[in-house]
């Protein structure tokens, strides 16, 4: 579904990715793990079109999307839940969600609201609350729900468990699993590598801007180097 070949990208004069290759098949959940600064978030931002690609290619379902505007990429169904949630803090929960769905018609919007509220009953209860006053876990649910309102086919999650209590982390990972079951392909960037790999079909380990290792979730969980460097086992 998504194929990245020899991707170089970064910020101004600083190149962060030095030739990343990876592939995600339709219906998979793929984890992207690695240390801070390895290039996980940069990879997601390059796919979303938020930062320019300096060389290499990103193809989504056969079309080369690496020079597309981010709005066009979202329209194609490739959507990112940004790190640190980036909610519109002064708007209500409903307004935040609606912003995700404006591109589509009103009747469709109502149906998507129902789907998201089914996944996150909590958001329905708090629909008119101001987003900035939600708890950390609820904010993360809203960020994911808002991205789902765009009806993504390929959803990228950047550190969804960041700063959440263990109980909530488990909830969020359950949600990610459900999203995958609903037929959305998922790419998951996580510090919490054990949980991420347990959940994922396959995983990629990024080191210093290149893919150091890849394999199925179980393979990586059993790999000595991964266990030592990222799982602390």
């Amino acid at each position: 579904m998504l194929r990245i070949e020899n991707l170089h990208a970064g910020y101004a004069d600083l190149e962060v990715l030095h030739g990343v290759d990876l592939e995600v098949n339709e219906g998979e959940i793929v984890a992207l793990i690695g240390a801070n600064g390895a290039g996980k978030t940069t990879t997601l931002r390059a796919i979303s079109g938020v930062i320019p690609v300096s060389s290499g290619s990103i193809t989504f379902e056969g079309s080369s999307i690496d020079s597309w505007r981010s709005s066009k990429i979202v329209a194609e169904g490739v959507v990112q839940v940004p790190e640190a949630r980036k909610l519109f803090a002064d708007m209500s929960v409903r307004e935040n969600l609606r912003l995700g769905a404006y591109r589509r018609g009103r009747s469709e919007m109502d149906a998507t609201f129902d789907e998201v509220f089914e996944l996150f009953p909590r958001l329905q209860e708090r629909a008119s609350q101001i987003a900035g006053t939600l708890s950390g876990g609820e904010q993360q649910m809203l960020a994911i729900g808002r991205a789902l309102m765009t009806k993504p086919r390929f959803l990228m999650l950047d550190e969804p468990s960041l700063g959440l209590a263990p109980k909530l982390v488990a909830d969020i990972f359950d949600v990610v699993r459900n999203i995958g079951k609903n037929g959305v392909t998922v790419m998951l960037v996580e510090q919490n590598a054990v949980r991420a790999l347990e959940l994922s079909d396959r995983g990629y380990v990024l080191e210093n801007g290149v893919v150091a290792l890849h394999g199925t979730g179980d393979e990586l969980l059993g790999n000595d180097r991964v266990r030592e460097a990222y799982l602390g086992l």
């Binding site: 938020v50 329209a75 959507v79 940004p82 909610l87 519109f88 912003l99 991205a147 765009t150």
Partner: peptide, 23 residues
């Protein structure tokens, strides 16, 4: 309107707006 919501979204956080497909 929709364009008004887009304006508020861009004001609050341009990157987040772009991530939702707003130009």
């Amino acid at each position: 309107s929709r364009i008004g919501s887009y304006m508020f979204a861009v004001r609050e956080d341009e990157d987040a707006a772009a991530a939702l497909g707003i130009n």
